[in-house]
Protein backbone atom coordinates (compact mmCIF):
# COMPACT_ATOMS: atom_id res chain seq x y z
CA UNK A 1 0.00 0.00 0.00
CA UNK A 2 1.40 3.40 -0.87
CA UNK A 3 1.29 6.55 1.23
CA UNK A 4 -1.81 7.94 -0.45
CA UNK A 5 -3.82 4.81 0.22
CA UNK A 6 -2.48 4.77 3.77
CA UNK A 7 -3.56 8.36 4.44
CA UNK A 8 -7.02 7.74 3.02
CA UNK A 9 -7.43 4.54 5.04
CA UNK A 10 -6.37 6.21 8.28
CA UNK A 11 -8.80 9.07 7.73
CA UNK A 12 -11.58 6.63 6.96
CA UNK A 13 -10.81 4.81 10.22
CA UNK A 14 -11.10 8.16 12.01
CA UNK A 15 -14.37 8.78 10.14
CA UNK A 16 -13.14 12.02 8.67
CA UNK A 17 -12.43 13.44 5.25
CA UNK A 18 -8.91 14.28 4.15
CA UNK A 19 -7.76 17.74 3.15
CA UNK A 20 -5.95 17.93 -0.16
CA UNK A 21 -4.14 21.14 -1.10
CA UNK A 22 -2.85 22.12 -4.52
CA UNK A 23 -0.01 24.40 -5.45
CA UNK A 24 1.95 24.59 -8.69
CA UNK A 25 5.63 23.77 -8.31
CA UNK A 26 7.89 26.67 -9.20
CA UNK A 27 5.53 29.37 -7.99
CA UNK A 28 6.85 31.76 -6.84
CA UNK A 29 10.10 29.73 -7.16
CA UNK A 30 10.77 26.01 -6.86
CA UNK A 31 12.13 26.38 -3.32
CA UNK A 32 9.45 28.94 -2.49
CA UNK A 33 6.74 26.53 -3.60
CA UNK A 34 8.29 23.77 -1.47
CA UNK A 35 8.26 26.09 1.57
CA UNK A 36 4.61 26.87 0.92
CA UNK A 37 3.67 23.21 0.50
CA UNK A 38 5.41 22.33 3.76
CA UNK A 39 3.39 25.09 5.44
CA UNK A 40 0.21 23.59 3.97
CA UNK A 41 1.12 20.28 5.60
CA UNK A 42 1.85 22.05 8.90
CA UNK A 43 -1.52 23.77 8.65
CA UNK A 44 -3.33 20.45 8.27
CA UNK A 45 -3.25 19.22 4.66
CA UNK A 46 -3.08 15.43 4.53
CA UNK A 47 -2.26 15.28 0.84
CA UNK A 48 -0.48 17.76 -1.43
CA UNK A 49 -1.11 17.99 -5.14
CA UNK A 50 2.04 19.35 -6.70
CA UNK A 51 0.98 21.07 -9.90
CA UNK A 52 3.11 20.68 -13.00
CA UNK A 53 2.95 24.09 -14.70
CA UNK A 54 1.88 23.71 -18.33
CA UNK A 55 1.88 26.06 -21.29
CA UNK A 56 -1.74 25.33 -22.24
CA UNK A 57 -3.79 24.95 -19.06
CA UNK A 58 -7.16 24.86 -20.77
CA UNK A 59 -8.97 23.64 -17.66
CA UNK A 60 -7.60 26.28 -15.30
CA UNK A 61 -9.05 29.65 -14.44
CA UNK A 62 -7.04 32.88 -14.33
CA UNK A 63 -5.50 32.38 -10.87
CA UNK A 64 -3.76 29.09 -11.62
CA UNK A 65 -2.94 30.24 -15.15
CA UNK A 66 -1.11 33.23 -13.72
CA UNK A 67 0.89 31.07 -11.32
CA UNK A 68 1.75 28.51 -14.00
CA UNK A 69 2.87 31.27 -16.38
CA UNK A 70 5.20 32.68 -13.76
CA UNK A 71 6.58 29.25 -12.89
CA UNK A 72 7.28 28.47 -16.54
CA UNK A 73 8.81 31.88 -17.15
CA UNK A 74 11.29 31.06 -14.41
CA UNK A 75 12.17 27.80 -16.14
CA UNK A 76 10.40 25.29 -13.89
CA UNK A 77 10.93 21.83 -15.39
CA UNK A 78 9.50 18.37 -14.90
CA UNK A 79 12.47 17.28 -12.72
CA UNK A 80 11.84 20.35 -10.52
CA UNK A 81 8.24 19.21 -10.06
CA UNK A 82 9.33 15.70 -9.11
CA UNK A 83 11.85 17.18 -6.65
CA UNK A 84 9.07 19.25 -5.08
CA UNK A 85 6.94 16.12 -4.74
CA UNK A 86 9.86 14.43 -2.99
CA UNK A 87 10.15 17.34 -0.55
CA UNK A 88 6.45 17.00 0.27
CA UNK A 89 6.80 13.24 0.76
CA UNK A 90 9.64 13.91 3.21
CA UNK A 91 7.17 15.71 5.50
CA UNK A 92 5.13 12.53 5.84
CA UNK A 93 2.19 13.83 3.81
CA UNK A 94 1.11 12.03 0.65
CA UNK A 95 2.59 13.71 -2.41
CA UNK A 96 0.72 13.65 -5.71
CA UNK A 97 1.48 15.36 -8.97
CA UNK A 98 -1.33 17.02 -10.92
CA UNK A 99 -0.44 17.34 -14.57
CA UNK A 100 -1.93 17.80 -17.97
CA UNK A 101 -1.17 14.79 -20.11
CA UNK A 102 1.41 15.91 -22.65
CA UNK A 103 4.26 16.66 -20.22
CA UNK A 104 3.90 13.14 -18.78
CA UNK A 105 3.71 11.45 -22.17
CA UNK A 106 6.65 13.45 -23.45
CA UNK A 107 8.78 12.68 -20.39
CA UNK A 108 7.98 9.00 -20.84
CA UNK A 109 5.23 7.33 -18.82
CA UNK A 110 7.50 4.75 -17.21
CA UNK A 111 10.22 7.29 -16.45
CA UNK A 112 7.70 9.67 -14.91
CA UNK A 113 6.11 7.02 -12.70
CA UNK A 114 9.43 5.49 -11.62
CA UNK A 115 11.08 8.83 -10.79
CA UNK A 116 8.05 9.93 -8.79
CA UNK A 117 8.04 6.64 -6.89
CA UNK A 118 11.77 6.99 -6.23
CA UNK A 119 11.27 10.29 -4.36
CA UNK A 120 8.38 8.90 -2.33
CA UNK A 121 5.50 10.29 -4.39
CA UNK A 122 2.35 8.22 -4.35
CA UNK A 123 -0.03 9.37 -7.07
CA UNK A 124 -0.78 11.40 -10.17
CA UNK A 125 -3.94 13.30 -11.14
CA UNK A 126 -4.45 13.68 -14.89
CA UNK A 127 -7.32 16.07 -15.65
CA UNK A 128 -7.26 15.73 -19.43
CA UNK A 129 -6.69 11.99 -19.66
CA UNK A 130 -9.59 9.56 -19.83
CA UNK A 131 -9.08 5.85 -19.10
CA UNK A 132 -9.64 4.89 -22.74
CA UNK A 133 -6.46 6.77 -23.70
CA UNK A 134 -4.45 5.63 -20.70
CA UNK A 135 -3.26 2.12 -21.58
CA UNK A 136 0.51 2.61 -21.21
CA UNK A 137 -0.03 4.91 -18.22
CA UNK A 138 -2.07 2.30 -16.35
CA UNK A 139 0.71 -0.21 -16.94
CA UNK A 140 3.45 2.16 -15.76
CA UNK A 141 1.64 3.31 -12.64
CA UNK A 142 0.77 -0.25 -11.64
CA UNK A 143 4.39 -1.27 -12.08
CA UNK A 144 5.70 1.52 -9.85
CA UNK A 145 2.85 1.55 -7.31
CA UNK A 146 1.76 5.07 -8.20
CA UNK A 147 -1.89 5.91 -7.61
CA UNK A 148 -3.93 6.96 -10.62
CA UNK A 149 -6.59 9.59 -10.20
CA UNK A 150 -9.04 10.27 -13.01
CA UNK A 151 -11.91 12.74 -12.83
CA UNK A 152 -15.66 12.39 -12.95
CA UNK A 153 -17.93 15.34 -13.69
CA UNK A 154 -21.54 16.35 -13.12
CA UNK A 155 -22.13 15.55 -16.81
CA UNK A 156 -20.76 11.99 -16.50
CA UNK A 157 -23.15 9.17 -17.29
CA UNK A 158 -23.41 6.21 -14.88
CA UNK A 159 -21.50 4.12 -17.43
CA UNK A 160 -18.64 6.59 -17.58
CA UNK A 161 -18.54 6.97 -13.81
CA UNK A 162 -18.21 3.19 -13.46
CA UNK A 163 -15.54 2.99 -16.14
CA UNK A 164 -13.56 5.90 -14.71
CA UNK A 165 -13.78 4.77 -11.10
CA UNK A 166 -12.64 1.29 -12.08
CA UNK A 167 -9.50 2.77 -13.64
CA UNK A 168 -8.61 4.83 -10.54
CA UNK A 169 -6.26 3.56 -7.86
CA UNK A 170 -6.25 5.87 -4.87
CA UNK A 171 -9.35 7.96 -5.11
CA UNK A 172 -11.83 9.32 -7.64
CA UNK A 173 -11.71 13.08 -8.20
CA UNK A 174 -15.23 14.48 -8.43
CA UNK A 175 -15.33 17.85 -10.15
CA UNK A 176 -17.93 19.81 -8.20
CA UNK A 177 -19.05 22.05 -11.03
CA UNK A 178 -18.94 22.22 -14.80
CA UNK A 179 -16.11 24.63 -15.38
CA UNK A 180 -12.48 25.49 -14.85
CA UNK A 181 -10.56 25.84 -11.59
CA UNK A 182 -11.16 28.86 -9.41
CA UNK A 183 -12.89 29.86 -6.18
CA UNK A 184 -16.68 30.06 -6.28
CA UNK A 185 -19.15 31.42 -3.77
CA UNK A 186 -21.17 28.22 -3.84
CA UNK A 187 -20.11 24.71 -4.64
CA UNK A 188 -23.70 23.65 -5.12
CA UNK A 189 -25.75 20.50 -5.15
CA UNK A 190 -24.14 18.95 -8.22
CA UNK A 191 -21.18 17.86 -6.10
CA UNK A 192 -23.23 15.97 -3.57
CA UNK A 193 -25.23 14.27 -6.28
CA UNK A 194 -22.05 13.32 -8.13
CA UNK A 195 -20.45 11.87 -5.00
CA UNK A 196 -23.55 9.78 -4.35
CA UNK A 197 -23.60 8.53 -7.92
CA UNK A 198 -19.89 7.72 -7.80
CA UNK A 199 -20.17 5.87 -4.49
CA UNK A 200 -22.84 3.67 -6.03
CA UNK A 201 -20.27 2.62 -8.61
CA UNK A 202 -17.14 2.16 -6.50
CA UNK A 203 -15.83 1.42 -3.06
CA UNK A 204 -12.93 3.81 -3.66
CA UNK A 205 -12.75 7.11 -1.81
CA UNK A 206 -14.33 10.06 -3.64
CA UNK A 207 -12.81 13.51 -3.16
CA UNK A 208 -14.37 16.77 -4.29
CA UNK A 209 -12.59 19.68 -5.91
CA UNK A 210 -13.20 22.76 -8.09
CA UNK A 211 -14.39 25.95 -6.49
CA UNK A 212 -13.73 25.22 -2.80
CA UNK A 213 -12.01 28.05 -0.94
CA UNK A 214 -13.33 28.44 2.63
CA UNK A 215 -13.56 26.44 5.84
CA UNK A 216 -17.35 26.46 5.67
CA UNK A 217 -17.36 25.06 2.15
CA UNK A 218 -14.86 22.41 3.27
CA UNK A 219 -17.15 21.50 6.16
CA UNK A 220 -20.14 21.19 3.86
CA UNK A 221 -18.29 18.79 1.55
CA UNK A 222 -16.58 16.81 4.32
CA UNK A 223 -20.03 15.80 5.52
CA UNK A 224 -20.48 13.56 2.47
CA UNK A 225 -17.16 13.17 0.63
CA UNK A 226 -13.93 11.39 1.52
CA UNK A 227 -11.78 14.36 0.74
CA UNK A 228 -11.85 18.09 0.05
CA UNK A 229 -9.54 19.49 -2.63
CA UNK A 230 -8.52 23.16 -2.58
CA UNK A 231 -6.30 24.78 -5.21
CA UNK A 232 -6.89 28.30 -6.45
CA UNK A 233 -7.49 29.66 -2.94
CA UNK A 234 -3.95 28.64 -1.92
CA UNK A 235 -2.49 30.13 -5.08
CA UNK A 236 -4.48 33.31 -4.42
CA UNK A 237 -2.81 33.64 -0.98
CA UNK A 238 0.61 33.55 -2.60
CA UNK A 239 -0.39 35.97 -5.36
CA UNK A 240 -1.75 38.41 -2.78
CA UNK A 241 1.30 38.22 -0.49
CA UNK A 242 4.37 38.92 -2.54
CA UNK A 243 6.63 38.79 0.51
CA UNK A 244 7.52 35.06 0.58
CA UNK A 245 7.34 34.74 4.37
CA UNK A 246 3.92 36.35 4.53
CA UNK A 247 2.76 34.15 1.66
CA UNK A 248 3.88 31.01 3.47
CA UNK A 249 2.12 32.17 6.65
CA UNK A 250 -1.03 32.89 4.65
CA UNK A 251 -1.21 29.41 3.11
CA UNK A 252 -0.57 27.85 6.53
CA UNK A 253 -3.46 29.85 7.97
CA UNK A 254 -5.74 28.86 5.10
CA UNK A 255 -4.78 25.20 5.52
CA UNK A 256 -5.63 25.43 9.23
CA UNK A 257 -9.01 27.04 8.48
CA UNK A 258 -9.81 24.36 5.91
CA UNK A 259 -8.58 21.53 8.17
CA UNK A 260 -10.85 22.80 10.94
CA UNK A 261 -13.71 22.92 8.46
CA UNK A 262 -13.03 19.37 7.31
CA UNK A 263 -13.09 18.08 10.89
CA UNK A 264 -16.23 20.04 11.72
CA UNK A 265 -17.98 18.78 8.63
CA UNK A 266 -16.87 15.19 9.20
CA UNK A 267 -18.59 15.19 12.59
CA UNK A 268 -21.86 16.00 10.86
CA UNK A 269 -21.81 12.72 8.93
Amino acid sequence: MNRLQDVLKTARAENRAVLIGYLPAGFPTVDGSIDAMRAMVEGGCDVIEVGLPYSDPAMDGPVIQAAADQALARGTSTPDVIRAAGAVADTGAAALIMSYWNPIEHYGVDRFASELAAVGGSGVITPDLIPEEAGPWIEATDKHDIGRVFLVAPSSTPERIALTAAACSGFVYAGAVMGVTGARDQVGHAARDLVERTKQATGQPVCVGLGVSTGDQAAEIAAYADGVIVGSAFVRRLLDNRDPRRGVDAVRELAAELAEGVRRGSKAR
Binding site: L129, I130, E132, L151, A153, S156, T157, R160, M178
Partner: peptide, 12 residues
Amino acid sequence: GGRFMPEALMAV
Protein backbone atom coordinates in the same frame (compact mmCIF):
# COMPACT_ATOMS: atom_id res chain seq x y z
CA GLY B 1 -5.95 11.40 -32.90
CA GLY B 2 -8.06 10.31 -29.95
CA ARG B 3 -9.81 12.26 -27.27
CA PHE B 4 -7.55 13.90 -24.69
CA MET B 5 -10.08 16.07 -22.96
CA PRO B 6 -11.53 16.39 -19.48
CA GLU B 7 -14.23 13.95 -18.50
CA ALA B 8 -16.57 16.96 -18.14
CA LEU B 9 -16.63 17.29 -21.94
CA MET B 10 -17.13 13.60 -22.71
CA ALA B 11 -20.92 13.85 -22.58
CA VAL B 12 -21.08 16.66 -25.12
